[in-house]
Design a protein around this nucleic acid. Structure first.
Lengths: 349, 349
DNA sequence: AGGGGCAATGCAACCGGTTACATGGCGACG
DNA sequence: CGTCGCCATGTAACCGGTTGCATTGCCCCT
């Protein structure tokens, strides 16, 4: 591979001049520039970005650290990030912590010197622990994580009120026994959603004690919960799953058992993954504009990179929207909402 | 940020010794090593991967260049790649060409010096053109692209025979008028699938001329095709879409028009994206193990990086499997297959 | 006690660019 | 016609590590 030295020699100039010509800096005569560019073409020279970023102290790359890459949730986030990053000519370096807290530290560390900024989504990490691993000198925005005491800007989803609203809606719709399928124990989103559910139940339906089944955000967990529901003879006329994937698994399993959704039992999810529109009946859910989560975070990061100082105070909290579809359809209540939202439903903006 | 020099000074040793201690090379006394590691801890030193990779001539990163990031197809590929990459401690640098051929060149160029190898998916690029942009010194594996004259290893899907088989199956099943929804004009996958369709029609159903509707792999294109079908009064009892997303859009639109799938018209797709199982009725499709596409390519790339020489000859062609589900269900034909494949359907391996 | 050998450590070049500063040639000015 | 200043170009230091080779110091041997 040709280096800048090679180009300079070929063109009969010094490396400094070659560098200036290539980067279009001023102070280079026409003929000189042409000679250099000719040499570039002849030798097929491509600048070595690694070396370049060493001196420029700028890599034009941002690191994205996600807990996993499975499912539409993460791919939508990446797409959202990429959308904005690409406009600014930034590259994305993917780091996958594969669910392990220990690997998170390694992932963050290995990014040093490779990236100009970091987008981190640490859904089941304690803030104190996280703080120890983040480099305060590296612009960082947290994804889907309220940093709490940390002064790190974040983009989060109002999981609590979203879950509260959904629970409320199910009760409004006439549900008497709402069962919640929880997410992973240490996952902060899952916990906030569960809190929202519990609080809504407590406030609105005091007499009914909330039933919570364990889950882990996977489709299988939703199926398992449905089986528990059926076999365990749990009296339930509505299921609120902590995410869409579990809701989908649940619907699927209920269907196989001959239980009709929504006639026998209503089902609701959270996230509005693209799949939600396509299952049958279509899944009612709290819509989080997932790609927005990514693009908003990326935009904040760009501002940080431009030198603005953003503290935790500048964080964004996205409010999820209730999208009522078939799984909670019926003669009254949610059904009415259902008619009102097709535009939003189609990602109208 | 602390540098190696700082650590060395703090520990009272030379940078060389500090470097050796940190990297666990031999030739360092116990006490010396301890002093260095203590300094590392004290100064919170994290090695600068950029600088490191400059001397080591190794970045532990591989570049992934995809035409887009939209939809499950790409996210599955990335997941497959990551799975293997992560095991080998490799990072992924994402380059998105956003559909533009021109950007492909830029994307490839900007990877120089950042990555040890490249995984490229250039679905609508001519081989000659591609050849001009690839760096022969950089280990590269092509994704879903038969390099033809180029001596570059690739992982591809046997689109032609897959489409042939699916068309055959639809005709077997009793379809008389099969309509094909094509993919983007310049997309090689799409063209191979179309060829497979046309050839199968020609061989098996000579008397019926194949009808081909335009498409671009998007859900909307599928809807549009369905509308054409309905309004245009095209006589059709089966639709074979060039990919699943279009098939899904088509089903959706047919349903809204009150046309029953599969009773009035059968529908089939290609790819077997996760969504395919979930639409209703479930979509019959040619299953491509999409994540396998990524992981296989990544494994080949790792072999290249280990120094093995793999030419185009060592390429892998994945054969898609027919998965019959509800959209082609009926009393005979595909329905029988349908019973036989649930294991494969669940990604049993 | 002196010399040889080996392991631990230091020095300095190097990876491939960028850039501050030095240099030198030229035209414009008095 | 001599001098000043500007602009194109060159020299070399630097980014932050790694590593080949030189050096040092210790132990062991004769």
């Amino acid at each position: 591979m040709a280096t800048l030295r090679d180009v300079a020699r070929e063109a009969g100039v010094s490396v400094a001049t070659a560098s200036r010509a290539i980067n279009g800096l001023g102070n280079v005569t026409g003929p000189t520039r042409d000679a250099v560019l000719a040499a570039v073409k002849k030798l097929n020279f491509v600048p070595h970005s690694g070396a370049r970023s060493l001196t420029r102290r700028k890599t034009d790359t941002i690191g994205v650290i996600l807990p996993d890459l499975f499912g539409e949730f993460f791919s939508e986030i990446i797409r959202g990030i990429d959308l904005v990053a690409h406009e600014s000519g930034m590259h994305l370096l993917l780091g996958n912590m594969h669910g392990s807290t220990h690997e998170t530290a390694a992932a963050i560390a290995s990014m040093r010197g490779r990236v100009d900024g970091l987008l981190v989504m640490p859904p089941d990490m304690k803030p104190e622990l996280l703080a120890g691993h983040l480099d305060p000198a590296l612009p960082t925005v947290l994804l889907n994580y309220d940093a709490g005491p940390l002064d790190v800007p974040f983009v989060a989803v109002d999981n609590y009120h979203g879950a509260y609203a959904m629970t409320e809606a199910l009760l409004d719709r006439g549900a008497r026994q709402v069962v919640h399928i929880a997410g992973p124990k240490h996952n902060r989103d899952a916990r906030d959603r569960q809190r929202g559910f519990v609080d809504a139940m407590a406030k609105i339906a005091k007499e009914r004690s909330p039933v919570i089944l364990p889950g882990d955000f996977s489709e299988e967990a939703g199926e398992e919960a449905a089986r528990l529901l059926i076999q365990g003879q749990l009296p339930a006329d509505a299921v609120f799953a902590s995410n869409d994937l579990m809701a989908v698994g649940c619907i699927q399993q209920l269907g196989e058992a001959g239980i009709s959704v929504p006639r026998d039992v209503m089902v609701a999810g959270f996230d509005d993954i693209p799949l939600a529109r396509h299952v049958s009946p279509a899944l009612s859910t709290m819509q989080v504009k997932i790609d927005r989560l990514g693009s908003t975070a990326m935009m904040m990061l760009l501002r940080l990179l431009r030198g603005e100082t953003l503290g935790a105070a500048s964080s964004t909290v996205l409010t999820p929207t209730l999208i009522a579809r078939g799984t909670t359809a019926g003669p009254v209540g949610l059904a009415a909402v259902s008619k009102a939202v097709p535009a939003a439903d189609r990602d109208s903006d």
